[in-house]
Design a protein around this nucleic acid. Structure first.
Length: 628
DNA sequence: CTAGGGTTAG
């Protein structure tokens, strides 16, 4: 009896004769059976009197090992009910253990094997063992097993070597992985190259990722997938999109992973035109609308400013997983739709789903963006007490932000001092900023001095402190603090803004004169400045007044990257169409103010995604209500 | 029967 004549696993059950004849001993099961189907089959075998048959035990375990589920107990019980399990069965049990939640059990089984002359490991055993070690970074155990591999003469087996290289990479032993790769060029295949590409990607060594990819003799879709994933995970978003284009130009078909990654690249860059193009590529390829693809699309639309599109896709999803909910909740949060994010989270809970750390980052950041102190504190407590989630830096970040911006600076300080992990200095920077805006001179002075001591090169701390002095009219201190900036190596992250126009990406930095249309852009900027002044816009006087040392800086404020992008947008984006800008840093107060006025006098909708959220500017107002 | 890639926040 051959499995080839059977149409589906279900028909397999129906065609099982009772009692099962000996011809069935040559049966091998199809892969991708569900746990339910395997259990049904198992039941039939028992009723047919084949319980404990060593051949069928092996087949059941092989099917389990290749199924989606990871039933540790069940697979063990199958083996235990067998009198004379085959090596095949034991290997597949190791495989089951390797992918289960307790992969170290694979090693217990291995040491049992070594004590039994009957079950000496073969070439199939070791890849599963190294896979198990990879799951818990068991490089010490792995190295011991490597010694056995050498002793038994299996070290030339390409499957085993690949699994071992993979183990070295997952255990951050990049050097050892490379040595193993270099050692025997003869013992390499396509998988070896792919392991190297993905391994270097995980290690953040993007140069080596590219080198390995270029040197791969023949590439498959996993090679491309590993390259593109490596780019996205290390922030090389444009390169990821370029590689995707290259791949598509070669008429290769993408897989799900590639599509999800390029959607993420578009999401992070805010490239709606490109994102839409990928969406239509997915449609025209008739690519299956999996949960991952749908979730990627929701994330992309939300992060590109189309929250209603994201919402529609989410509501239409027949099956959602945890990530889908997380993406949607976080998407609402970056749009400042705090109440909707909270309502969705409550709906999530009523479905009986269990939130994870990311879910709470979404909820808490929603609360912080809307200044909902009571709700934020409630959910922070709920997270710790009901769900036993230990807060991470990001959760503290939301809470400190929420409390301090609402003026509850002492509460914020108390929270930071009670933290279970050493606080990131950024938390103190947030509190320092709140001291400045709420006029807490003495406290701010103290924190500012401490921060400068902690990191004397951080430019922003001097600025904050000097502004606190300025507020209390301590001019000498202002001058002294400003003077301390000179000669420091500022670690300031360079700010940029980008705008998509007619399928091209245009990126600007402050004072940028590199763009082809620079002349027109600066002319437009002059026009903007004239018209907003007429409309009653006042530049941030305090800031300008005390930037005495370098007059250059006054101009730099006027030439902040988003202003260049807006000017460019007004020039090239058809009137009536919304101008969409993405920037990496938070929008500064002055730019926020001027953008409001621009939206009014030029009658333009302007959407800015800054480092933390969306601002929808319309008719002189912003969706954030000036709280951001 | 074997090894390799995967969305989520600021």
């Amino acid at each position: 009896m051959s499995i080839g004549i059977l149409k589906s696993p279900i028909s397999l059950f129906k065609q099982f004769p009772t009692p099962i004849t000996s011809t069935l001993h040559y049966l091998s099961l199809p892969t991708n059976l569900s746990l339910h189907q395997i259990k049904q089959l198992h039941a039939r075998l028992i009723t047919a009197g084949y319980d404990g048959d060593s051949h069928f035990t092996g087949q059941l375990l092989a099917a389990l090992a290749q199924s989606q589920s990871t039933p540790f107990q069940y697979s063990l019980s199958i083996l235990n009910s067998t009198q004379n399990p085959s090596l095949f069965a034991v290997n597949n049990l190791i495989r089951c253990f390797a992918k289960s939640e307790s992969p170290h059990q694979a090693l217990s089984l291995y040491s049992f094997m070594r004590k039994n002359a009957h079950f000496q490991p073969n070439n199939y055993t070791f890849p599963f063992l190294f896979q198990a070690c990879s799951k818990f970074m068991g490089i010490i155990e792995g190295t011991q097993i490597q010694a056995h591999v050498i002793k038994l003469g299996f070290f030339v087996n390409v499957y085993i070597r690949n699994a071992l290289i993979h183990l070295y990479f997952t255990s951050h032993e990049t050097k050892h992985a490379k040595d193993l790769f270099d050692e025997s060029p003869a013992c390499r295949d396509l998988v070896t190259w792919n392991v190297m590409i993905a391994g270097y990607a995980k290690a953040g060594q993007i140069d080596n990722v590219e080198k390995m990819f270029d040197e791969t003799p023949e590439r498959d879709v996993i090679s491309w997938s590993s390259l593109i994933t490596g780019y996205v995970q290390n922030g090389y978003l444009e390169q990821a999109l370029d590689s995707f284009k290259r791949m598509m130009d070669l008429q290769l078909s993408p897989n799900e992973s590639i599509l999800v990654m390029v959607l993420s690249a578009c999401a992070q860059l805010g490239l709606i035109e490109k994102g839409r193009m990928i969406h239509s590529t997915i449609d025209s390829l008739n690519f299956p609308m999996t949960i991952h693809i749908q979730t990627g699309l929701i994330d992309m639309y939300a992060k590109c400013g189309y929250i209603e599109k994201a919402r529609n896709l989410f509501n239409k999803m027949p099956i959602k997983d945890l990530s889908s909910w997380n993406v949607m909740i976080c998407g609402l949060a970056i749009h400042g739709l705090a109440m909707e994010a909270i309502d969705l989270f409550e709906k999530f809970l009523t479905k009986g789903l269990t939130p994870v750390n990311v879910t709470f980052i979404g909820v808490l950041s929603a609360c912080s963006k809307a200044g909902l102190v009571d709700k934020g504190c409630h959910y922070f407590k709920l997270m710790m007490e009901k769900y036993n989630i230990v807060p991470e830096m990001e959760h503290y970040g939301c809470m400190v932000d929420l409390l301090s911006r609402k003026g509850l600076v002492l509460e914020a300080i108390e929270l930071v001092e009670k933290m279970s992990i050493p606080p990131d200095p950024v938390l103190w920077v947030t509190i320092l900023g709140a001291c400045r805006t709420h006029g807490l001179i003495k406290l701010g002075e103290e924190i500012g001095k401490k921060l400068i001591q902690l990191d004397p090169n951080h430019y922003g701390n001097y600025v904050q402190l000097s502004e606190i002095y300025a507020k209390s009219y301590k001019w000498e201190e202002v001058v002294r603090t400003r003077g301390m900036i000179n000669g420091r190596n500022s670690k300031k992250i360079p700010g940029w803004s980008l705008i998509e126009a007619h399928g091209k990406i245009h990126q600007f930095v402050a004072g940028d004169r590199e763009h082809d249309m620079s002349m027109e852009i600066y002319k437009m900027l002059d026009r903007i400045n004239t018209r907003v002044l007429e409309a009653g816009y006042l530049p941030n006087v305090v800031q300008v007044l005390h930037d005495l040392e370098e007059e250059e800086k006054i101009n730099v404020i006027k030439e902040h990257s988003e202003r260049l992008a807006i000017a460019f947008g007004l020039l090239v984006i058809g009137s009536g169409k919304c101008i969409r800008i993405v920037k990496n840093l938070r929008v500064c107060g002055d730019c926020h103010e001027i953008t409001k006025v621009i939206s009014k006098v030029f009658e333009r909708e302007i959407v800015v995604r800054d480092g933390s959220r969306f601002h929808h500017f319309k008719r002189g107002e912003c969706s954030c209500q000036d709280y951001w």
